[in-house]
Amino acid sequence: NIINDFSLGKADILVGTQMVTKGLDFERVSLVGILNADNLINFPDFRASERAFNMLEQVAGRAGRRNKRGLVIVQTSQPAHPILSYLQAHNYEGFYEHELEERRRYGYPPFTRVINIYLKHRDEDLLIRAAAGYAETLRHLFGNRILGPDEPHIARIQSLYIRKIMLKVEIQASMSKVKAILRSVYEAQMADKSLRSLVVYYDVDPM
């Protein structure tokens, strides 16, 4: 109803979340403001830049449709950030090349495969200790391919606290061997009776 009223001109200003980027076509919109774009740009994920560029470009597309010139204002504390210069120029290819080089330099997909290891437990203190021990064991086996443990963006679901460990694996590595190593580490960790209620699961090639 809100979107329909806005389309009919019953309101002059529409305030919304990222949902307003999803294919809506408003004929009269001439100005779009993006508040606190830093939240998108600095999100703790290796795909943050890609997602931020995509989202900001989509939002910018809401202004000046139907062959009318529009204005987009982006609020940021990082006006010199590369993403914003590519956005301003609508330079898709430039952004792609920049992002690909960043991924290559720091060892992220498509140059590696990523496995996120999530640990959950009702006792946060026990979880913190367990996650640290788990990561240390994996680090002895995989070296600097292990990152974390970290507190994910959503750090608790219902009564379970969550920690995340990231494993980066070379494309040419044997995933069956990686799987076997992860299995042996899991079994060794579960030998500790205090960790029997620890929940561990894996997200391979997370989207």
Rank of each mutant, 00 (worst) to 15 (best):
N1C: 05
I3R: 06
D5Q: 13
T17Y: 03
Q18G: 12
M19A: 15
V20L: 15
G23V: 08
F26P: 13
E27P: 11
R28N: 14
I34T: 09
L35E: 09
N36Y: 03
N36R: 15
D38S: 09
N39Y: 15
L40T: 07
N42Q: 12
P44T: 08
P44S: 00
D45T: 08
F46D: 05
R47V: 11
S49R: 07
E50I: 12
F53P: 12
Q58A: 13
A60Q: 01
R62F: 04
R62E: 08
R66L: 04
N67Q: 11
K68V: 07
R69M: 12
R69D: 11
L71M: 06
V72K: 08
I73L: 13
I73K: 13
T76F: 07
A80Q: 01
P82G: 08
I83T: 00
I83K: 05
L84P: 03
A89C: 04
Y92W: 02
E93C: 02
G94F: 02
G94A: 09
Y96L: 04
E99C: 07
E101R: 02
E101P: 06
R103Y: 11
R104V: 10
R104A: 13
G107S: 06
P109S: 11
T112I: 03
R113P: 09
I115P: 00
I117A: 02
I117T: 06
K120P: 09
R122G: 15
E124Y: 08
E124R: 14
E124D: 15
E124N: 15
A131F: 00
A132D: 11
G133H: 08
E136V: 08
E136C: 12
L138D: 03
R139Y: 02
H140P: 00
L141Y: 12
L141W: 09
F142Q: 01
R145Y: 12
L147K: 07
G148D: 01
G148I: 05
P149S: 01
D150H: 04
P152L: 10
A155F: 05
R156V: 13
I157C: 13
I157P: 07
S159R: 13
R163K: 15
I165F: 01
M166F: 03
M166R: 14
K168W: 12
Q172L: 01
S174Q: 10
L182V: 01
S184H: 06
S184D: 11
Y186V: 04
Q189W: 08
A191C: 05
K193Q: 10
K193M: 01
R196T: 00
L198T: 04
V199G: 00
V200G: 06
Y202R: 08
D203C: 03
D205V: 00
P206H: 11
